[in-house]
Structures are given as structure tokens and as C-alpha cells.
Design a protein around this nucleic acid. Structure first.
Lengths: 187, 187
DNA sequence: TACCCATTTATATACCCCTTTATATATAAG
DNA sequence: CTTATATATAAAGGGGTATATAAATGGGTA
């Protein structure tokens, strides 16, 4: 077991929301001129909040997608705030919004150098095309997440649905890298 | 004989029409500004009716094509309505239009799951390229129609010239699927 | 000169892909 | 500095894929 502790930061949370009722997007645009709504290019209306700094997509079906929050708690409070603002301008929303976390993006620092070329051969399930993208892509089965692994030892973990999965996945990849001698610590 | 009754809906009727006289399309465009006529891309003028919801192509030769009707009766009444509107704006049409049903499109639900891969091997005359199109294409000789067969048990039958052929063809394909054990009913 | 194509219209079926949003990471190119 | 490359994820709408069918006109090929 590695005694080194990776620095992990949740960077983005994507949540789907159900209001269980139809919403008149045109009315929202009229009440909130700063929102963006171009149905010919995308059916969702973009509703931004400065705090928590998020962007929520609202659809005519009453479904929404909230992005940008840094924690599940922040994501839920952003949704509540959006609903509260809508109600404040006369948009009737009767039920309590149902929120589901769909994707968590986190960054991590392992503190060592990683040999990406060797990763490809010793790990498998790795895609690495340096002239296409500098990071190696590793798909982990359990937890089911995808890692972008960079030579400087930094990682991006995407696809988790619970924050705990992020910590478990990073601990696991760290262990794997150490066991297979794919990471070199210089300190 | 299957005791299950497929749900069949006629979805579209295509009919060719002969007025037996030349027609001045430019004059129609002037009298009916909502019609579409771009001879450089297509020689037919498009004349739409809201009820029955149809689109009739009118050619300078006096031939027409009526599409969109849900029954032979509706198709004929659409043609009559178009002719009546033309006459109402001074376009002289002396003879009674001769209508011929050329194609009937119908959808059907068999209510069972169909194994499309097995269909290819056990039925023959089947084209199935899932990454190209999700439905299997089956050409039936008698009645001479073509079926688009989907795994969920829904079908699209095209090419019939009489509504009776649609019902006969669907009954026949249902029997074939059952006889060859290619359809699985879950209820 | 004959054929082939494609053009347009409607219609069900059901897949894929793209559109937009946020976010870290790290390369290159303009 | 900005954009593109690559990742996951939901939402809904558009486009393309395939099918038959008539009409008339253009293009291309044998």
C-alpha cells in the first residue's frame, strides 16, 4: 500500500433534473434576458448562476441539466436556486425537483513521473496517441471511470457517479502504477 | 394460424393523377403564392393541403402525384380538393382527374421480440446491416411488398397498391416468423 | 440514343452522430 | 491568447441511414 496521498480535487459535477411538468422556455427568456436560447442550434435554454458558478440547461419537457458545481451538495443547491429564481418571476413549478448526479470530473496529482509508452504495454486498455492528445486514456472497470493520464503524474478522472468512486479509483490506479513500476518518484 | 392480431395502421398513400391536359405552373404560382416551384431543382410544383394533410406535386404535363393521405378515400378527396381550388382561381381543368394508387405505406406491431440475426439465416432475401440501418429489409413476393423489420416487433410495410395486400402481407409475415420461431412473445 | 442516376413529396420504423454546458489535464498551431 | 485535440454525462431536436412510389428534367456513361 502506497503511503503517498494523491491530491484530489472534484472539478465538475453534471446532474440531470426532472421537474415533472412542461416548461415554457419563451417565457423564461422574456423574464431573464441574460439567458441564452437558440432552439435552432440547441433545444435547451442556458441559465447561468454566478454562485454557485454553474450553467443549467433547461428544456421544454421540464428536464434540466446542471453543470459546473464542485460538489454534489453545490449541484443540488444550484438547482434549488434556479428553481427559486424561476418561481420568483412567475414561472410555476409545483413539484420538488428530482436530482441525479450523472458525472463527476476530478483532477489528481500523484507526484511522480509516469512513462506513458510503458503504460500502453504493461497495462492494456490504454489508448495513447501523443500527436493526437498528450494524455493516455485508461478505462477502469471498477469503479467504472476513465482516466486521462499525463506524464507529469497528473490525472483527470471522469465518469464517476459518486465522489467516493473518485477516491477509490485514484487510490487504485496509484497502486497499479506503483506495482507495475510505471511511476517514478523523484523526492 | 396465429391467434394474435397485429396492430396495423396505414400511414401514407401515394397516388398518380392524370388531368389529360397541359397546366401552366407559372400561373398557379401567381394565384397560390404559398406553393413551392423551383424548376431548376425539380420540375414539379408542390401544392399542400392542410386537410387532408397532403402534398401534391403538379407537373406542366397535367400529371400530378398526391402524397400523405392515410387512406385511398382520403387520397382521392385530396386530389378533388386540389382541382377544385385550382378551378376556383381560374385554372381551367376540363376532364375528371384519373387517380391511381401507386404505393401504400403501413406500420404494424406484432407484439413480440424478433431476432434479426437469425432472420438473415433462416429466411433469406433479407438484408440486415445494423450499423447502416437498425431494421432488416425483407422482400416478399406475394403480396409484392417490402418489409422493414425491427427487433422490437414493429414493422413497416411498403409497396402495396391495395390496402388488402397490406393486411394479407402482415398476416403472412407473422405466420412465417412464428413457424420459424423467429419471434418471441413475452406475455 | 438509350439507359442509368439524382432531384422532390409523404410516411412509419429506429439507430448513429452532432448540437450545448462544465471541467481538469497538456500538446500544437495560428 | 485562442482553438483544436481527448474524456464523461444528461437533456431534445436535427440530420443521415433504409423502403416504395409516381411525376419530369438534368447529368453522366456505354
Amino acid at each position: 500500500m502506497s503511503k503517498r496521498k494523491p491530491l484530489i480535487s472534484i472539478q465538475n459535477i453534471v446532474a440531470s433534473v426532472s421537474l415533472n411538468q412542461k416548461i415554457d422556455l419563451q417565457k423564461i427568456v422574456e423574464k431573464f434576458p441574460q439567458t441564452e436560447y437558440n432552439p435552432s442550434v440547441f433545444p435547451g435554454l442556458v441559465f447561468r448562476l454566478k454562485k454557485p458558478k454553474t450553467a443549467t440547461l433547461i428544456f421544454g419537457t421540464g428536464k434540466m441539466v446542471c453543470t459546473g458545481a464542485k460538489s454534489e451538495k453545490e449541484s443540488r443547491s444550484a438547482v434549488e436556486k434556479v428553481v427559486k429564481e424561476l418561481r420568483g418571476q412567475g414561472i410555476q413549478i409545483t413539484e420538488k425537483p428530482v436530482v441525479n448526479i450523472q458525472n463527476i470530473v476530478a483532477s489528481a496529482e500523484l507526484g511522480g513521473e509516469i512513462d506513458l509508452e510503458s503504460l500502453v504495454y504493461k497495462l492494456g486498455r490504454v489508448m495513447y496517441e501523443p500527436e493526437q492528445f498528450p494524455g493516455a486514456v485508461y478505462r477502469m472497470d471498477d469503479p467504472q471511470v476513465v482516466f486521462l493520464i499525463f506524464s507529469a503524474g497528473k490525472l483527470v478522472c471522469v465518469g464517476a457517479k459518486k465522489e467516493e468512486q473518485v477516491y477509490a479509483a485514484v487510490d487504485k490506479i496509484q497502486q497499479i502504477l506503483e506495482d507495475k513500476a510505471l511511476i517514478y518518484y523523484t523526492d
